[in-house]
């Protein structure tokens, strides 16, 4: 069976990718943010995962508003980084773990999650940026294959927090039932608190962000029970992306160890950071 070696929650702000593209990594605005990921990169390099399951939302790049899947699963062999309007980015294509992805498709539908199945699709900063933060920016190829899972968090109705928790439970069982011996890391992405739209734009809740990072490992139930309204009030309209971390957390054991955390605000307009979790039995 495949082995889940860790769960990682992280922001996926587009400006992070832009900052890397423009060589701003070591400027005062960005250096503390990027430096905070160095220990996690070292941990991941040591843990040597083979596959990353990345749960993220597309930002109107792969899907337009003409067709909005609440949940979509990539089963492709290759995913190209999408041009979001700033031009193509100099990062390698992502190689898909198609075998595991089809297994996830089977297991999800068996357990009454019915994703749109995508065999040709590009991926935006929602996947690109977490990969760069966790694995650095490779010259030639990414060190892991990926399985992208797209969640609609833009057009309402977006799925409920509890639903994404349940998705995590399904992914957990699906990984455990996969006959391969791959080492899998699961990435829940998005957040932390931010709001891009309306006169409340610029809303950041640093205290709630710090609580989230400290508590998502040991006390996830409080976040499962929150409504979408609660998420928007607490974390801002786009901060509600944090529900995607619940899928990561739901895929982990009830008891986990918080290996490391990092928080920085503001990264562009966003409270940004990460948490790395390990199953206690691991």
């Amino acid at each position: 069976m495949a082995r889940l070696i860790g769960g990682l929650g992280t922001s996926h702000v587009p400006s992070i990718g832009v900052a890397l593209d423009r060589g701003l990594r070591d400027t005062p605005d960005w250096k503390p943010f990027f430096d905070g990921y160095i220990p996690a990169q070292a941990w991941v390099a040591e843990a040597k995962p083979d596959i990353a399951i990345v749960i993220f939302n597309d930002h109107g790049n792969a899907f337009f508003l003409d067709q909005v899947p609440t949940l979509a699963l990539g089963v492709a062999d290759r995913y190209r980084p999408i041009d979001e309007g700033w031009g193509p980015r100099a990062i390698p294509d992502f190689v898909g773990a198609a075998d595991l992805a089809w297994h996830l498709a089977d297991q999800m539908v068996e357990r009454h999650f019915d994703p749109m199945i995508c065999r040709e699709i590009e991926v935006d900063h929602g996947l690109q940026v977490p990969m760069e933060l966790v694995f650095g920016r490779p010259e030639q190829a990414w060190p892991v294959k990926v399985v992208p899972i797209f969640v609609n968090t833009i057009q309402y109705p977006i799925p409920t927090p509890e639903r994404l928790w349940q998705l995590g439970a399904v992914l957990r069982d699906a990984i455990a039932s996969w006959p391969g011996d791959e080492r899998v890391i699961i990435l829940g992405t998005g957040g932390l608190s931010h709001q891009l739209q309306g006169s409340r734009a610029g809303f950041i809740n640093q205290q709630a962000d710090r609580d989230w990072i400290a508590q998502i490992g040991p006390n996830p139930d409080r976040y499962r029970r929150m409504s979408r309204q609660d998420y928007i009030e607490t974390f801002g309209s786009e901060g509600a992306e944090l529900i995607m971390w619940l899928a990561m957390r739901g895929a982990m054991d009830a008891e986990v160890r918080t290996v490391m955390t990092h928080y920085f605000a503001p990264a562009s307009m966003t409270g940004a950071g990460m948490v790395l979790l390990e199953n206690l039995g691991a």
């Binding site: 057009q155 309402y156 709001q195 739209q197 309306g198 409340r200 979408r228 928007i232 309209s237």
Partner: peptide, 20 residues
């Protein structure tokens, strides 16, 4: 009700229709 937060335009049907 669907989520409703002051000063926060959530992208639901009315805005989706208007802004398509």
């Amino acid at each position: 009700l669907a989520p409703e937060v002051p000063e926060t335009p959530l992208y639901r049907r009315d805005l989706a229709d208007q802004g398509y």
